[in-house]
Amino acid sequence: MASLSFILRRILQMIPTILFILVVTFVLVRLLPGDPATVMLGDRGREADIARINAQLGLDKPLVVQFLYFIANVFSGNLGNSIALRVPVTTLLVERLPVTLLLTGMAAAIAVIFSVPLGFWAALRQNRASDTIIRGTFQVGLSMPVFYVGLLLLIFFGAHLHWFPIGGYGHGFGDHLYHLFLPAVTLALSLSAVLMRNLRSAILNVIDAEYVDFARSKGLRGYVILVRHVLRNAVISTVTLFGLQVGVLLGGAVITETVFAIPGAGRLMIDSIYGRDYPVIQGLTISLAIVVSLIFLATDLLQAWLDPRIMR
């Protein structure tokens, strides 16, 4: 029962966060230079037309009223229409967001596959040559901007070796995965550096703990100790860090999608900024922030499962 109340409490905590997200996006978009009606009609718009469109969008009402309308609309799934593409923002999100989620999901998977074994290896070989090489390589990876890594991979594996397509998204699920492989590796690089570093030091902290000595003195075999006692405790802080890094990952996706010409939410965001398509920017910011808070929820629950003391 303790766990059920923990989960409920944790879900309730999301409400103020989501409200804050909505307030920030609302305020941000109202600050946009140039009113949307002028953007829609261009410079030739007549006064009467501009007023009509403002009335249509509810922009002639007081801010508080606008905000209440906005909240009501968001919760009924209505995020307005794109000014440039003239379709509902929700339609665009349904179309584009899965692409970005697939990309970041792949990147996260690649990062975990790389960083967990390497973090272990580096910790167990502390200060030896292989540890230094692993850490040095990742340190360099951490200092590389995403767009630069992307360009280098694109040039070498795409344009030069022709192993991978030089951008786009392809058709069909298998083709999507193939097209997203290089972008996902691009995104995974800095994430795996962060995770590896954290896991390494967490393992070094745990490995001296008394319960590990105890497990060893009980005669448990090496890998049992490593997986059941060392990894389970070391990974807790890495899970927190992973949650915090999801935001960074989504930000990186915006850039990666631009470099690799992937029709995802990030690319849409950049296009909308150039086109001043404010309903789209608003919808994207809200939905990306909600994705992040859902991931926070998931990592918190995972953490509580790994270490039930957190639930108290």
């Binding site: 103020p16 966060t17 804050f20 997200i21 920030v24 915090l244 999801v246 935001g247 960074v248 990952l249 989504l250 930000g251 990186g252 915006v254 850039i255 965001m269 994207l284 910011t285 990306l288 922030a289 992040v292 808070s293 926070f296």
Partner: peptide, 9 residues
């Protein structure tokens, strides 16, 4: 709330 927004976004 701040860390919920992707920084770059």
């Amino acid at each position: 709330a701040t860390i919920t927004f992707p920084f770059l976004v």
